[in-house]
């Protein structure tokens, strides 16, 4: 078994051991990293005391996100704090998140925190995948961010997807103009998006235990892209 496979295998085994079907954000990002999909640099802490030391090993500004299997929508429960510029900010931010979660989702068990370098602004897209019982893995691409459920400006393609197929997908969504300079935004790195689409397709092909995978947003720049938030689900064990 190669390194990528063994890293992912260990993750899945751990989740299974804890009777979980959902992977946490850092777990999902570890899978993305294993397939060299760019993610912001991040660390996971289990308690507030280590926060300062860990934060100082990263480059400010930082984002903080709560890790809890009960909270699939972290920001709605106040589980995210952005723009931490120093260690003091980080400590305050963690405290605030804990209070928010205690208020909004008192039943949620906080397993730890993700401390992550803030990604610069760019164009937000979504790359997701599901495993269809009849046709196998299908990859979704579309206009990303919070509006995805409302706009549904997305397209699907079945795995495997080559570079040309990835570009066809980009062409099929209305938001394509946002990537090619509409509203003065400049031309974005379409090849970087194509890489992510093809790699997500490969992750689904090579890891039959993953039934859903989603990167939202994938922030795209003039050069490069970054998977800022991600989630994954495992198949049900029968």
């Amino acid at each position: 078994m190669n390194k990528t496979a063994s890293v992912i295998d260990a993750l899945i085994r751990e989740a299974r051991g804890a009777l979980r079907r959902t992977l946490t954000e850092p777990e999902t990002k570890t899978i993305l990293k294993a397939y060299s999909i760019p993610v912001p640099r991040f660390k996971v802490i289990r308690d507030r005391e280590t926060a300062k030391a860990v934060a100082d090993t990263l480059t400010y500004p930082l984002a903080l996100k709560v890790i809890s299997r009960e909270l699939t929508h972290k920001s709605e429960a106040g589980g995210v704090a952005l723009g931490m510029h120093n260690a003091k900010n980080v400590e305050d931010g963690l405290f605030e998140i804990m209070l928010n979660v205690a208020d909004d989702a008192p039943q949620a068990v906080i397993e730890g925190f993700l401390i992550e370098e803030m990604a610069p602004r760019g164009v937000e897209v979504i790359v997701g995948a599901i495993r269809d019982p009849v046709f196998g893995p299908a990859v979704m691409f579309g206009t990303g961010g919070l509006a995805v459920e409302i706009l549904k400006d997305v397209t699907f393609a079945l795995s495997p997807i080559d570079r040309e197929g990835a570009f066809e997908m980009m062409n099929e969504v209305k938001g394509f103009g946002l990537l090619t300079g509409a509203r003065g935004g400049g031309f974005k790195d379409l090849d970087a998006i194509a890489d992510v689409i093809m790699k997500v397709s490969r992750i689904m092909e090579e890891n039959p235990e993953i039934t859903e995978l989603e990167i939202n947003p994938l922030i795209v720049y003039r050069k490069g892209a970054s998977a800022v938030d991600a989630r994954a689900t495992l198949t049900a064990v029968v």
Partner: peptide, 17 residues
């Protein structure tokens, strides 16, 4: 019969596939 944990799954009806 999918779980709808992600946006992808909630948008992916049979017809899209």
């Amino acid at each position: 019969q999918r779980a709808t944990f992600s946006h992808t799954a909630s948008i992916a009806g049979r017809y899209e596939i």
